[in-house]
């Protein structure tokens, strides 16, 4: 019975590796123990960050606007932070999946999430495991105004046409996620105009715009940046920025069309897990702030129709908490929250 002999060999291998594993655990413990005796302040001075690769986690599929931002920040941030930065796509569930992933990682600053306006809208919905309070805010990076898309041969030439039509028939507007910022601004538009839209969630704004172009859907609420690659193929009725956007001067703003309350921006920024040390957050902020001064970054911002949205950690956090109060109210009105 040769085979029996090898069971014993195997058992030996198991036992050996267990012993080695035990030693490994001990070693790690030794490394950490002297630090426990030090005061927090001493420890703070010693923070060497970053010493290993950083991962930027994004909830969008590769190629989506926020993913492109993450990839460019990763590329430029590698120079300013001095470590490799990779981008990880965690797609789905209205963005909560990327945040769930963040929460499974240690609060050491090596897992940075890209986040956007949606953090205060979707995450407070019933059943969501994490809220905006479970994160720290590193830097707000850019703003991308909302835009209302219809097909290029659509009977709705202006926002006015569109809203008039909505009074007499059911109009379906699609966009990213349920209870998302796009969902909220669409709801607000309907409320201000005295109509009710039916919201159809899609996996991405691009999907919704494709459905509009194909005549399957009346309109899509997405961001103006998506227009850059579809100019001439689709019509934008209005954009939510304060002034008209440089690369699409033909598109009027909601404000000039009589809806100043809809002047709001979809913002994008970087966040980390709550409990990440302040020093590390500051270092991340400094690194990415510097990256945003790179000429390549400026060029990208210009060509993609993004607006600079820089805010430092404390101001960023303040803005998010203020927005959260407002969104909570709207979500309750929409019946998404109790």
């Amino acid at each position: 019975m040769k085979s029996k002999k090898f069971v014993w060999v195997l058992a030996l291998v198991f036992a050996l590796s267990l012993v080695v594993a035990g030693c490994g655990g001990g070693k790690n413990g030794d490394k950490e123990s002297p630090k426990q005796g030090e005061t927090p302040k001493q420890q703070a001075q010693e923070v060497k960050f970053p010493t290993k690769p950083i991962t930027i986690v994004t909830g969008s599929s590769p190629g989506a606007p926020i993913d492109v931002m993450a990839r460019l920040l990763a590329k430029l941030g590698e120079k300013t932070l001095g470590v490799p930065i990779s981008v990880l796509n965690k797609v789905g569930g209205s963005g909560t999946i990327a945040l769930s992933y963040n929460q499974t990682q240690p609060a050491d600053g090596y897992t940075v999430n890209t986040e956007a306006t949606g953090i205060t809208s979707i995450l407070q919905m019933a059943g969501s495991p994490y809220t905006y309070k479970d994160f720290e805010y590193v830097i707000r990076v850019q703003m991308d105004p909302f835009a209302l898309y219809v097909a290029k041969d659509s009977p709705y030439k202006t926002l006015d046409d569109f809203l008039k039509a909505a009074k007499s028939k059911k109009i379906r507007v699609g966009g990213y996620g349920k209870g998302s910022p796009h969902n909220i601004i669409t709801y607000d538009l309907g409320k201000k105009a005295g109509v009710e839209f039916e919201w159809v969630p899609f996996n991405s704004g691009n999907d919704a715009i494709m459905n509009v172009m194909g005549g399957h859907l009346d309109a899509a609420m997405s961001n103006i940046s998506a227009y850059a690659s579809k100019k001439g193929e689709v019509r934008v009725l209005a954009v939510s920025s304060d002034e008209r956007v440089n690369f699409a001067p033909e598109v009027p703003t909601f404000k000039e069309l009589g809806y100043p309350e809809l002047t709001r921006y979809h913002w994008r920024g970087l966040i980390v897990k709550k409990g990440t040390p302040k020093e590390i957050i500051q270092k991340l902020h400094d690194g990415f702030k510097k990256a945003m001064e790179d000429p390549e970054w400026k060029k990208y911002m210009e060509s993609s129709g993004m607006l600079d949205g820089y805010l430092p950690p404390d101001k960023f956090k303040e803005a998010v908490y203020a927005q959260a109060d407002n969104d909570l109210k709207v979500l309750k009105e929409m019946g998404l929250l109790k």
Partner: peptide, 16 residues
Amino acid sequence: AVLLGALIMHGLQPGP
């Protein structure tokens, strides 16, 4: 979709 990221990273906005 990943190739799209590559295009934009190199300053190329796809589209007409």
